[in-house]
Design a protein around this nucleic acid. Structure first.
Lengths: 130, 130
DNA sequence: CGTGTAAGGAATTCTGACACG
DNA sequence: CGTGTAAGGAATTCTGACACG
């Protein structure tokens, strides 16, 4: 599929799909016309990348993470490069994401409870103002 | 307790505790000296407020949510004011928080898995470079 | 660093029409 | 009828650049 369809199917702006490619996170084939040509599997990969980017992971960390994912579970041994640095960076990101999830979940629940309260209280005040 | 202790116990910067008060989200008593004096219950309330603020809820929405929480579960009826507007705003915030939590959880898991992979692969390369 | 946007050009696709055998 | 084609316009995609927080 071309970039427009991938964008529609993933909800990711075309601009960002091009950017992911620029960062090596997505490597579509090219038609003679120069148009990008994506595989079916790129739908999932683009979604993963987008999620990670929106979560605040720098693209330079996403690259090795993707490599990890693509390897056969067997011949994955001395393949990694970064070493301790990478481990530390990912550990830091994990800690950040973990605490952020907790904070947001807590708030989400508080808002949800309040919302229930609001709706329970006003039952049939105005029959849906819209 | 005074503001310093509350700050230590909650991890919330003094600057923010004063700000919450300015927005009516925390209403400590005042000593003759002018020092703020917080109740034990303010520890929890400050934590809640902080979480909501960091989650991106505007303080003007946090205020009614707190009022809701403080009421006796019984005489909570015509107490609300905003009406439909408020419901819509909170519904929107809930949706935002919900999708954000999903995105971050997904990323968190991906990073965690990669982290495990990294650590499993490099067992005893360099005995902790630090 | 991630994202939006305006710019100018190239490739693609669409429709309705005409031609041909 | 099925099929090819020229025509004009619209939608899509391309790149490199600037802007922003």
């Amino acid at each position: 599929m071309r970039i427009g369809e991938l964008s529609r199917r993933t909800g990711i702006p075309i601009r960002m799909l091009r950017y992911y490619e620029e960062r090596g996170l997505l490597t579509p084939q090219r038609a003679p016309s120069g148009y990008r040509h994506y595989q079916e599997a790129d739908v999932e990969q683009a979604t993963l990348v987008s999620s990670l980017v929106r979560s605040g992971l720098p693209t330079r960390l996403i690259l090795p993470l993707l490599r990890d994912k693509q390897l056969n579970p067997m011949d994955r041994d001395e393949t990694d490069d970064g070493g301790d640095d990478l481990v530390a960076l990912f550990a830091a990101e994990f800690a950040r994401l973990d605490s952020q999830v907790k904070c947001l979940s807590f708030s989400r629940n508080a808002v949800q409870q309040h919302l229930r309260q609001l709706r329970a209280t006003r039952v049939g005040h105005t029959p849906t103002g819209t």
